[in-house]
Design a protein around this nucleic acid. Structure first.
Length: 215
DNA sequence: GGCCAGGACACCA
DNA sequence: TGGTGTCATGGC
């Protein structure tokens, strides 16, 4: 993959160098958000997070022990409550087994952590990478649908699926902070640039492709 | 009222 | 291994 810094800085120019944090009050809340946001608007997830904070003001570390029906009711605004409640319990049970010690989990599993996460119900490739990036502090690339559409739009190639782009990008040259921002930038930009009726040619990155060609 | 959102899984060939 | 149907709510 070509140098990704030009794209990174172009996005940063439009979205700000202070942006890019996952909006959560704890690592556990990032985990829940990552599951709840699957194929769902973030606004719907926020409704659910409010429910969860109210129901569990002391945190979510015993969530895997709760009645699944109770969780389903709380997360209803995010949709897919049957699958997502199972996903929440499978991931939270795994984390609980390791005492919610994220650093220890990362060191224990090392290179196998991604495969370990993929074995949990409700954790596919994108969610696994999001968890690595924001929960386990590993600077990985999230090759989600916005990323694939953006890369294609700016002339960085076309990719059939998640794995194709992930493989093409390989290891990021970024710091952890930059990797987190990169994902944030891509998704925030994508929401606007690829919204229904929006034309990429009208977007802030419309001439990025030409600029990089000239350089 | 239809469409879709920061996917993943079950099922099938 | 890859392709398709299904899961569900809320906002536009």
């Amino acid at each position: 993959m070509t140098d990704l810094y030009p794209l990174f800085y172009e996005l940063q120019k439009h979205l700000g160098e202070d942006a890019g944090d996952w909006p959560a009050q704890s690592k556990e809340e990032i985990v829940l958000g990552a599951i709840l946001v699957q194929n769902t608007r973030w606004e719907n997830v926020e409704l659910t997070i409010q429910n969860l904070r109210q129901a569990y003001p002391d945190g979510y570390k015993t969530l895997h022990l709760e009645e699944v029906e109770h969780i389903q009711e709380l997360i209803r605004p995010s949709g897919f409550q049957k699958n997502k409640s199972r996903a929440i319990q499978s991931v939270m049970a795994f984390l609980s087994e390791h005492g919610f010690d994220y650093e220890d989990i990362r060191e224990r599993y090392g290179e196998n952590l991604r495969d370990q996460l993929l074995q949990l119900f409700g954790v596919g490739q994108e969610t696994a990478d999001v968890l690595l990036l924001y929960v386990f502090d590993v600077p990985v690339f999230v090759a989600d649908s916005y990323a694939r559409r953006l890369f294609e739009a700016v002339g960085l190639g076309t990719y059939a699926n998640y794995q194709a782009l992930r493989k093409a990008v390989g290891e990021l040259p970024f710091s952890l902070r930059q990797a987190q921002q990169f994902h944030y930038y891509i998704d925030e930009f994508g929401k606007v640039a690829f919204a229904k009726g929006a034309l990429f040619s009208d977007s802030a990155l419309a001439d990025f492709k030409l600029k990089t060609r000239e350089a």
